[in-house]
Structures are given as C-alpha cells and as structure tokens.
Amino acid sequence: MMIDPLSVFILLLGAATPILFAALGELVVERAGVLNLGVEGMMITGALAGFAAAHASGSPALGFLAAALAGAAVSMTFAALTQFLLSNQVATGLALTLFGLGLTAMFGKPYEGMKAPAMMPGPLGLNWMIWLGIALVPLVWWFLARTRPGLILRAVGENHDAAHGLGYPVRRMRVLAIGFGGALAGMGGAYISIATVLQWTEGMTAGAGWIALAIVVFAQWNPWGVLAGAWLFGGVTVLQLRLQAAGVAVPVQLLSMAPYLATIFVLVLISARQKFGRSGAGAAPASLGRPFHALK
C-alpha cells in the first residue's frame, strides 16, 4: 500500500478548509465572550445557500458570497436572542443547529442530484478558497493582537462589565463578532458542497461544525492553533479515506469514526494540559458564555 505524502498533504489542505473557516469564525466569536454552538447549523445553511447560488449563477465565487451572507443572516437570530433577549447561549446555539438542519432539509430537496460548477484552480493547483482560508489565519491574528478594535473585542470577551464601564460597546462588538463567525461558518459549509462533495445532500456537514468548536478549544483560542488543529483533522480524514480506498481489513464504518475519535482525543489532551498545567496561558476567555446585561 502506497501513500504518497505530497498528494496526501494536498488532499489534507482541502479536507481542512471547511473546519478552518468555521473554527476561525468561532474563535473570533468566543474571544468576544460568546459561545455559539450553532456552527453546524450555520455551516449547513451556507452549504445549501452557497450551492444554490453557485448552481444558479454558474460561479463558485458568487456561491461563497451567498453562503457568507446566509451564514451571517442565520447567525443574527442567535445574536438577537442571546444579546437582546438574554437567552441561554448553549440552548440557543443548539436551537440554531437544529433549525438550520431542518430548514436546509426542507428547502434543499429540489437541489438534490444537481452538480456544482467547477472551482477555479488557483496557484499550485490549489483552489482559491484554500488560499483564502490560510490567509485568514494571520489576518485574524493581526486583528486580534495588533489592532484597536481587536483589543476592544478581547476586552469585551475577558470582562464585559469592565469593558462596559470603560464605555466600550459590548453588545455591538458581540453582534458583529457573531455575524463574522456566521459568515465564515457559511463559507466553510459551502466549501463542502461546492468544492468537496460537488453536490447538495441533506445533513452533509456531518458534524464538521462541532469539530470546529472542538478545534477552537484545542487551539486554546489562538488562530495559529486553529490552523494546526484543522490540518490535524484534515490529515486524519484523508488518511482514513486512503485506508478505505486501499481496502484495509477494517470495516468502512469503523474507519469513518476516526475524525470524531481524534477530535475527542485532542480535546481531552488539551483540556488535561490546561487542568494540570501550571501556567494560566491558553485559558478560555473569562466571560465566555456569560450573558451580559447592563443595568444602566
């Protein structure tokens, strides 16, 4: 059995891209102190909207644009509920996932069996979305670490009461972050339907949104860590598919568990490091998941 490292790496980049987009978006959301468990719902919405737009226009680029808009649009229901109606973030995120899966199952029926238009090849034979995903990593890092809005966003995420006291717009910052996260999740989902599977099928994100959430924890809320996590995940996926293709004597269904088990494994590893490690580095944003209600 031959597994050529270079071709595996190229496939890995493709498999990692949906997770990379979604996890980078969620990272920004969580750094603003919001836990949005609706990534899966936003991804599947983007997968359908992107596919539909790409199919109708014949342009994958328009597809990704539509996916970003659709992802951001559904994320606004989450924003309205958690930021203005102060609902529980865990439950609301879950609702967003269930709603997104249902909505796309309902509206996606006519698109089943259709083909996606071909992606434009980019430099080195990799498509432009792979490059965009990789380029977003330093951009997000730079925004969070080196710009003033990024600093405010982090302040809001670490201590929303203090940030509010200093006059920073906690709510506006968080709504914007949620919208950004929704747009990236939508694009990540569209990558699955437009560039990987090349068609629309119900529930096709298959837990990618949840894996993205785990990758953010694995990355310890650092964009570079998200890149590493997404590549690790991509590697496991590709290896598993290669083993399937090579006809290893392990049932396909068991091999396809690998990404989920790997996710649990890295989650445990990193959680243990945080629990037993001596430094406080890599901890979650202090206000993560806590609702903010200014009395004045």
């Binding site: 894996i211 568990m257 996710t263």
Partner: peptide, 30 residues
C-alpha cells in the same frame, strides 16, 4: 472525561453521537 481532564461534556457527548451512528451502521452490515 470531564471529571478527570476537564474536557467539555457538550462536545464529547455530541462527538459520540457520530461514533454511535457508525457503530449502528457497522452492526447492521456486519
């Protein structure tokens, strides 16, 4: 995994849904 290592029970329990679905498929075919 939460008690020993502090891993999020939300994500682990959800991941295990996908694992369980694949076990069911394996059982049905095998």
């Amino acid at each position: 995994l939460r008690n020993w290592f502090g891993a999020s029970e939300i994500l682990v329990s959800l991941m295990l849904v996908y694992v369980a679905q694949r076990i069911a498929a394996w059982m049905a075919f095998g």
